[in-house]
Amino acid sequence: MSHFANTNTLFVFDIDGTLTDSVPMYLMAVTNAMYALGIKEIDTDYNAYKHHSDSYALRFNYERNFEIPYTKEILTLFEKALIEEMKTFSPVTEIKGAGRFIDFLKTAKIPFCFATGSLPKPALLKMEQSGIWCDEAVLATSKTHEARTGFVAEAIEKAKKYYATSGFSKIISVGDGVWDLKTAKEMSLDFVGIGSKNKKELIKLGAQHYFDSIEELQSYFFSD
């Protein structure tokens, strides 16, 4: 992967753990929101789930507890409960340099979008609390797709519409999780890992480009 990025390069960002320091809090909020819906037995080993997304976590636990299919109405109630649970925690902060990097991309007219396993309102709240620019026009979430491949593909399509283009010469997925790398491989996207939490595992699984910080990532692609 060439490290030159231009106005026909699309960056697809994960949010939790990549741009916002929100993973531990949000997993607790997800668990508590399901309790609030009356789900008593919850599998909290979220990393072992088939899909790392709010909608899948809800469906899996709801149907396992009540033995009936969950509905869109239940998903809407879950999203509202998530917001209420998030309000009981301290505001989310950014991963250092995330807001500046997004602002840089906007100013430089480098296309980007967001693909997250979260639901829309919690995702927007995390970005707002972190002071990172976000617009629903370039945000895809698990409200429409349980699988990461689904909402990453949706994010790319939204970006095409937002930037008025039929396609991009290069698409770079930026994430901190093993599922981000696996999705990028499945979709034949370039991948850039970020942060230190999963660094060893991601490199072991074949991540060729990895940075400990967003500042390092920005310098790699856009240094003079």
Rank of each mutant, 00 (worst) to 15 (best):
F78H: 12
M127L: 15
K72L: 09
P24E: 13
T116L: 00
E94R: 12
M127N: 04
L75F: 09
G131H: 09
I102K: 09
S130A: 15
E154C: 04
P91M: 13
L27P: 01
E128C: 08
D54H: 08
R148D: 00
L37A: 14
D54I: 04
T107W: 02
S90F: 12
N61M: 05
S142L: 03
D54T: 01
A123S: 13
W133K: 01
M28I: 13
E41S: 06
L58K: 04
G38L: 08
D43A: 04
L27T: 01
T18G: 14
E136H: 08
K80G: 01
G38Y: 13
L124E: 15
S90P: 00
R148H: 04
R148E: 02
F101G: 02
A57C: 15
I74R: 07
L105A: 12
E63W: 02
Y46C: 01
T76Y: 05
L119R: 00
L125F: 11
P69H: 12
G150I: 03
A57N: 11
D45V: 02
L27G: 03
I74C: 04
K121Q: 10
E154G: 01
L37S: 13
I110D: 08
E73A: 14
I132A: 04
D21A: 12
V138A: 06
F151I: 02
R100A: 15
G150S: 05
E84A: 13
W133H: 14
